[in-house]
């Protein structure tokens, strides 16, 4: 009840903010307002609703094989969820490749529970009242790494190679508008309209800015989104064709981003504009 009240008050504040004209000059002030808003929401972070839902999905026997995900290996051994999120993407012996968190969870849903990948890939992004199960599961897993340092491993040769491939994808210019990820995301202090653009080429706090806020409750639409959606929508705006859901391209790009964010503290599933 208390949570609900705080949430309503916070959303009211957000609605007030959204109604005001935003100027580039007042961007700092707007950012400060949003920080305040985030603080208010810390008492009742909407993402927690999806964490709870995801935890139930993780522990419930489901799918054609009537199994839970409690034997799913996210890299720290079967069933270990605590701290797994901040140590992904990583190399997995059983698939012989580097996988990101959502790709790995979907892999477990297929191998352990018997779901079909094609079915999971049909409508993989949140919309209206619909939240795909992998989104809730990623949110739950992410919540179990709250306040931990990002530590995407680079010890396996495949992890180092995947980082380099992700970097190549990041700098690849193509499409009708000649864009690469790097066209907008390789300098500090840049904006599209009033939206700040994180610089992913600068390891540390700068690169982490665009990585550690996910998965996030997005005020636009009021839905929960993961990095799979974020990458998909970035490529759309890059005027590229569509990348496959939970594909190796996304895993490689996320490896580049995660490793550049290494050492920064992961605050847990958050709130996005």
């Amino acid at each position: 009840m208390k949570h609900a009240l705080v949430l309503c008050a916070a959303l009211g504040l957000a609605a007030g903010l959204a109604g005001q004209p935003v100027s580039a000059q007042s961007e700092d002030r707007t950012a400060a307002e949003f920080d305040k808003f985030r603080e208010v929401l810390e008492e009742a972070n909407p993402a927690e609703l999806w964490e709870v839902k995801g935890e139930a999905l993780w522990k419930t026997k489901r799918g054609p094989k009537n199994a839970s995900l409690e034997q799913c290996d996210l890299g720290l051994g079967p069933g270990v969820v605590k701290g797994a999120y901040v140590q992904l993407p990583r190399y997995f012996e059983d698939t012989g490749k580097v996988m990101d968190v959502e790709q790995r969870i979907v892999h477990c849903m297929v191998t352990l529970q018997g779901f079909k990948f094609e079915d999971l890939a049909k409508a993989p992004f949140s919309r209206g009242d619909y939240t795909p199960d992998p989104v809730s599961l990623v949110t739950y897993v992410a919540g179990q790494s709250r306040e931990m340092k990002i530590a995407a491993p680079q010890s396996h040769p495949q992890e180092r190679a995947t980082y380099e491939i992700g970097k190549q994808i990041f700098f690849y210019r193509a499409g009708p508008w000649d864009f690469a990820c790097a066209t907008c995301h390789s300098e500090d202090g840049k904006r599209i309209r009033t939206q700040n653009l994180p610089n992913f080429t600068k390891p540390g706090e700068s690169a982490a800015r665009g990585y550690i806020g996910w998965p996030g409750y997005r005020m636009t639409g009021g839905v929960m989104h993961t990095l799979q959606w974020r990458m998909n929508d970035c490529f759309r705006q890059q005027r590229f064709p569509e990348p496959g859901y939970a594909s190796d391209t996304i895993a490689a790009l996320l490896t580049y981003m995660a490793v550049n964010a290494n050492g920064q503290t992961y605050r847990g599933p958050g709130i996005k504009r």
């Binding site: 190679a161 380099e164 491939i165 992700g166 970097k167 190549q168 994808i169 690849y172 590229f240 064709p241 569509e242 990348p243 496959g244 594909s247 190796d248 391209t249 996304i250 490689a252």
Partner: peptide, 15 residues
């Protein structure tokens, strides 16, 4: 790495 990246993208993207 560049060649691997291009091959990967051509495998993963669709119209």
């Amino acid at each position: 790495y560049h060649e691997q990246a291009v091959a990967m993208m051509k495998r993963d993207f669709h119209t």
